[in-house]
Amino acid sequence: MDVLINVFVALHIIGIAALLGGFLTQMKAMGAGAARFSPAMLHGALTMLVTGVALVGLNQADDQSVNNLKIGIKLGILVVILALVYVKRDEERVDKGLFAAVGGLTMANIFIATLWT
């Protein structure tokens, strides 16, 4: 079971890397007001959602404790990110504030995952 959990953790990290990487590559364009949500950002957020839900299920099946409050907050943030990226995915330009919000929420999710013990 530990190997399976570790595989899903790795896939979860790949998802966050795609989402954050898509944001970071658009930082210069965001300054110019020409940023857009890339398909990598959408697919990264979807990967995070699927692997995150799987991780919670696998950890509970392995009788490991799960902090439901932490997971609920992370899920709520991810749903907001996913909704924003999905709705605005076809637009040529995304408002600076909206684009920055997605980056900020992504980083908040990373800090919650790593610092909340």
Rank of each mutant, 00 (worst) to 15 (best):
L11W: 05
G104Y: 15
L49Q: 14
L105V: 01
Q60K: 11
V79M: 13
V85M: 01
N109F: 04
L58A: 14
D2Q: 08
L55P: 06
I73F: 13
G72L: 06
I5C: 02
A10P: 06
L20P: 04
L20H: 06
Q64P: 00
M48E: 09
V9Y: 09
M48F: 09
L20T: 08
Q60Y: 11
F99W: 03
L4F: 13
L24E: 07
V66R: 09
L58S: 09
L55M: 15
V3G: 00
D95I: 00
G72H: 07
G15I: 01
F37P: 03
I110N: 00
I13P: 01
G57K: 05
G22P: 02
L42F: 11
A18S: 09
L46G: 03
G31E: 11
P39D: 04
M48D: 03
M48G: 13
Q26Y: 05
R93A: 14
H43V: 09
I112K: 06
I14F: 12
F99A: 01
M107Y: 10
G52M: 05
G76W: 03
T25E: 14
L49E: 14
L84P: 05
L24K: 07
N59F: 15
P39V: 05
W116P: 03
L4G: 03
G72V: 00
A18L: 15
E92T: 11
Y86I: 00
L69R: 07
N59S: 15
L115E: 02
F8V: 02
Q26M: 12
A100C: 05
G103H: 05
M30G: 08
V87C: 12
A54G: 08
K28I: 08
T47Y: 06
M107S: 05
H12M: 05
V102F: 05
Q64S: 14
A100F: 14
T25W: 10
N68A: 15
A35Q: 12
I73D: 13
D63R: 09
V66P: 01
L4V: 15
F111T: 03
I13C: 04
L75G: 13
R89S: 04
V87E: 12
G57A: 12
W116R: 02
F37S: 04
G31P: 08
G57T: 03
V80M: 10
I14N: 07
G21R: 03
G22E: 01
A32D: 10
L105R: 05
M107T: 08
V3H: 04
L115Q: 02
L98K: 03
N109I: 00
N6I: 05
K70F: 11
